[in-house]
Design a protein around this nucleic acid. Sequence first.
DNA 1: GTAAAATATTTGTCCGTATAAATCAACTAT
DNA 2: ATAGTTGATTTATACGGACAAATATTTTAC
Lengths: 357, 357
Amino acid sequence: METKYETVKKGIKADIIAGTYQTGDKLPTESDFMHQFGVSRYTIRRAVGELQNERFIYRIQGGGMFVDDWQSERVVQVNNKMIGVITTHIADYIFPNIINGIDRIVSDNGYSILISNTHNNHQKERQSLIRMLDSDVEAMIIEPTQSALPNPNLDIYKKIREAGIPILCVNSHYDDLDFPYIETNDLEAEQRLVEYLFTQEHEKVLGVFQVDDSQGVHRMNGFVQSYLKHPKISYLSEILMYQSSDEMAKIFERITSIMSKEDHPTAITCYNDKLAIQIIDVIRSLDLRVPEDVSVAGFDDYQLSEYIDPSLTTMAHPKEKMGIDAGNAIIKMINKENVSSITYDPEMIIRNSTKRN
Amino acid sequence: METKYETVKKGIKADIIAGTYQTGDKLPTESDFMHQFGVSRYTIRRAVGELQNERFIYRIQGGGMFVDDWQSERVVQVNNKMIGVITTHIADYIFPNIINGIDRIVSDNGYSILISNTHNNHQKERQSLIRMLDSDVEAMIIEPTQSALPNPNLDIYKKIREAGIPILCVNSHYDDLDFPYIETNDLEAEQRLVEYLFTQEHEKVLGVFQVDDSQGVHRMNGFVQSYLKHPKISYLSEILMYQSSDEMAKIFERITSIMSKEDHPTAITCYNDKLAIQIIDVIRSLDLRVPEDVSVAGFDDYQLSEYIDPSLTTMAHPKEKMGIDAGNAIIKMINKENVSSITYDPEMIIRNSTKRN
DNA sequence: GTAAAATATTTGTCCGTATAAATCAACTAT
DNA sequence: ATAGTTGATTTATACGGACAAATATTTTAC
């Protein structure tokens, strides 16, 4: 059996929704309702009190009860279709292009992007994840933070999964979480790049890699494996690792000392194009010419890399295409369709920074 | 005077927050509270009823009243604090740095960034604004779209203002809306840059400007006014305007034809560094040297501009600082504090691309 | 000792009444 | 005509009491 105040509440609510009482209309007084429903004042007050909490009516002491603007309120609740995007560094380099690609797709599907930045820090990743959960996003696209290390936020990821919020990883993926991902085959690509340098008769190659994300680690592993395939020269390889938190000036000092030696490497393969451009500047300050004395290769095909002098040899990262694919995939995931992971094989773009003749 | 039920409510709430009653603890019964506060059962029930609505306690008929998990619930309610950021092109150039600066500040204040992209198109700006309104953002930071043209979305801006949502403009501002803004003094900066070129004994300077945003228009106006101050050589000036929708290849063709003439300009001042880097490449393809034959100046001090060869002369755009200032300003605006607009005077950075000797 | 039954406790629903505070409408004095 | 006053209307707060329904505790029966 239904309670009396519930009956009264339903009755009044139905009249509001049906339009009997229109938005802004004055409702009957409490004593009117008392007679109409044949209940005490307490019961009426309890019913209208709850209707007030639900924003169907508002009351003015001495003035009366009025129908609230309940329809527009409803719209607000429905229309917050958001997709969370968590990056390591929003501003860095190729990620703006990826975001741009994501935005093109999801905004066409009526979604907005809620963005957050981890600065490659697990603690900040945790905050970002919690905030996204609280903001009620419908799905998330995540660039893993320090994906080379074990992740301490598995509990949050578990909660997200339990909440039924689909997650897609881009640029990298977490080994202990089976989210679909979109990334490039960095290991194999770096191998091809180093093999190409070998064909250019470079034997002593310096590899410089940022190793706190898995892309950097994969690229470094590719570098190592290329040398392992040529055991006769593998002792000539040289590797320089750094973390994103390191001061770049110190990295450049170490490069300076390596390149100042009599038998310095004849080629450098860099973590990415941005680093390559900076390293070319360092090399020139040592009165060495690029590519005549030292070849330099980058990675990612940064947008200005073909215009600078010398134009950069690099591996083409899909960037915006990756964003578009990620956008399409996340829309599919929201619609409960199956998606499979994508791995791009970057195309090698040979330009002037590795010419040798 | 405070009502009795409010006193009771406050008293119980304070004990919960202070930890006198811990999460999960059983609270005293209604009759206990009646004696404790010396009020009727109605008053107690009204107080605990509201505490239940606020998720501080839950009640079990016949069982008793218990302290709810109010701490975690609180986080949920508070934490959908969002600030909307509307840009023309998310990925372009300096805007990622600005977003990064904004993010640093607002995320420290517990806000997330809801981002949207207008592609410099008024129709898309309209969609973005409506979506931000529906998503219930607390404030907006907006990079004006086609700020050189009259804005057709004034009705939406009016609605936003009526909703009490503060708006801050960055990079530019709308003349017919009196929102506070943070921008650079592009006109004066371009003037200083051109004046510097004049002191380097350039008389025939080509200016290349993207004119569908007001920054480009201001820079062009600065270029024009510099020449107006030197009427004797003003006939030597040459201007090339383009829109962001134009194909760059055609722009470069026009530059090629201008620079292929016998008496071509001896200096080019470009809309921004990115364009400058591309134009340097075009010039070199004409067998002209930079800076020996042609000086080239950029604008914005893009992060790689000091590393390329020749390093670029440019005007230093505050970028990330602009984002940080914008973040601080919008937090102030949310707190109803007054903020005043900021105009930066970019510092001229003279590098090798304009050396002449 | 355990299960069922009886009893007590505690919250939920509902009524009637009283007073306070705010609003509204009619009246009055200027 | 208008400003101020008065009284009626209406919602807000508050008390006390009664019974229902769910839960907790004690007693009883085996």
